[in-house]
Design a protein around this nucleic acid. Structure first.
Lengths: 340, 340
DNA sequence: TTGTACGCGTTATCAC
DNA sequence: GTGATAACGCGTACAA
């Protein structure tokens, strides 16, 4: 690979002039500019952005850590991050944690060694050492999807408590009294914990008893949703509705219910969380809590870049709007309907 | 940020020793090793992998270019790439093309400036200048998802012709005679073109006339699938089955058919392509051609890394197995069934 | 407008 | 086992 030195020699100018011709052409006379351009072609010269970063001390790279890229909701966020980052001349180093804190911590380290200028994290452990270290080193980072409203971490998230509350309320208004919840494990998802709190609070506000037998903590996958709902449906007093901590679980629960011979939505109403694109394309279409995934990624990147460029220590907390999208997977429970 | 120089000064050793303590501890005496470790802690020293790459001339970074990260099939491939790459000490710089060649070409340039050691590309233009340039510069890269069996490009793909043929044959065996196809635009997807050839050939082999009015080229999205099938269903002689170039289109077509009042699968059998995870969780579950997406990414990375490390110019072509997964979205056409 | 010379953080080479 | 030092490719004072 040729370097600016080769180009300089060939064009009969100094390396400084070549550098200028690339980064500030207006400071180079048209003739030399032309000569340099020709020489670059002749050398098949390729600019080395890493070398530049080495001297300017800017890697122009961001690190992005998500639980699982195969979940479309995170894929959307990634696009939000990339769209903004690319526009600002940044590239993105991406890593998955599979909801495992160990992987998250390892990734933080690896990406920092790679000199990313900042980190965007959907964390699995809000009070882990990984984030604490970043803070102590004053390393710029911002959290996604969290409900944090204060504290030292910058974050862009949604009100997960409210989301859980709204989902449950929707079911109660439809006439449901026994409402189950498939929750993401609290050990790796504070989001799920907050949604569960919202669910519990809503039950209480409406004079309904909270029944732990109706709540299962499990993984955020299609398979888990299917198995969990079967477990619940096989117990004594079955629910007429279920609130799921994400759309994968909800779609899994749909399938599980079908396999258990339960009619949808008559036999079981299902609410998801995320509103991934496919939710409106399945049958019955999925009632769910919408999250602005793309916007979350975009806005998080904006905040991070701001912090990187302008400095400053004051954490930013931003809560984006969610809302319920009522579709076909929820309806009044059968008992109630037949009374009409 | 402190450097090995700071550490060296603090530990009272040379930078060379610090470097050795990090990269080859066995060549450093236990005592000095200990002193260096202490000094690193005191400095809050963080290793700079970029600086190392600068001197070793290895970025330990790969570039990955996909059409759309929000398609789970590509997300799976990305995981395949990352899983292998990370294990080998490589990080991955990721970019989306949205099936636009201009973005693909731009990404090739940007990533090369970032000194990625190789590129993994799901291309939108097999004979474009972007790939040609890579070849002329002898820059290591490998294609994913392509059907190329020879030529100068290394690739890991599937037999798209065969996939299209198999899908069509499955429908014919069920008794279908009028089979439509929703194809990804040939201008940005050679894969789709090959699948279409397979579809046509299968029709011919079974004595069925190819009807251009039954083929629509469109985008690889849920919305496109829905609209396209509605267009086809609104025409005079409607098909009893449709083969879709990916699962998004197929699921979109399902929804479009439902909205058009067509029963599934009785009124319309649907075959997809990809077998994304959700395909077996919807109702009716989707008959589709399975692609080993994760394996494709993994294997492509393996080939690329091999090329990077061992050198060599001979292109590798690998075709992975596909296969049809028959589920509920396909059945005998109604006319035929009533004859029974 | 152009050139010279230095520095960025690390590794590799060669002495000792 | 350890140290001194020259690279790596580029940007940037500063001088011309």
């Amino acid at each position: 690979m040729s370097t600016i030195r080769d180009v300089a020699r060939l064009a009969g100018v100094s390396t400084a002039t070549v550098s200028r011709a690339i980064n500030a052409p207006e400071n180079v006379s048209p003739q030399t500019r032309e000569r340099v351009a020709k020489a670059m072609q002749a050398c098949r010269y390729h600019y080395n952005a890493l070398a530049r970063g080495f001297v300017t001390k800017q890697s122009s790279t961001l690190g992005l850590i998500v639980p699982s890229i195969t979940n479309p909701i995170f894929a959307e966020s990634i696009r939000g991050v990339q769209d903004y980052a690319h526009r600002e001349g940044y590239q993105v180093l991406l890593g998955d944690t599979d909801y495992e804190y160990a992987k998250e911590a390892r990734l933080c380290g690896v990406l920092r060694e790679r000199q990313v200028e900042g980190l965007i994290i959907t964390t699995t452990r809000l009070n882990g050492k990984a984030l604490q270290d970043l803070l102590e080193d004053r390393f710029p980072f911002v959290l996604l999807y969290s409900t944090v409203r204060r504290g030292p971490f910058s974050s862009v998230g949604v009100d997960n408590f409210r989301g859980g509350y709204t989902a449950t309320e929707h079911l109660i208004h439809l006439g449901h009294r026994r409402i189950a919840m498939l929750a993401g494990g609290f050990s790796f998802s504070d989001k799920s914990l907050h949604r569960w709190h919202g669910y519990k609070k809503c039950l209480r506000d409406h004079g309904l008893r909270y029944d732990p037998a109706l709540v299962i903590q499990t993984r955020y996958t299609l398979e888990s949703g299917r198995e969990a709902i079967k477990t619940i449906l096989s117990r004594e007093r079955t629910p007429t509705a279920v609130f799921c901590s994400n759309d994968f679980m909800a779609i899994g629960a749909m399938q599980g219910a079908r396999e258990a011979g339960v009619a949808l939505p008559g036999g079981l109403s299902i609410v998801g969380f995320d509103d991934m694109a496919i939710a409106s394309f399945i049958s019955p279409s999925l009632t769910t809590i919408r999250q602005p995934a793309h916007e979350m990624g975009r806005r998080g990147t904006e905040i991070l870049l701001d912090r990187i460029r302008k400095g400053g220590r004051k954490p930013v907390h931003e809560i984006l709007d969610t809302g319920i999208v009522a579709r076909e997977s929820t309806a009044a429970p059968i008992a109630l309907r037949t009374e009409i």
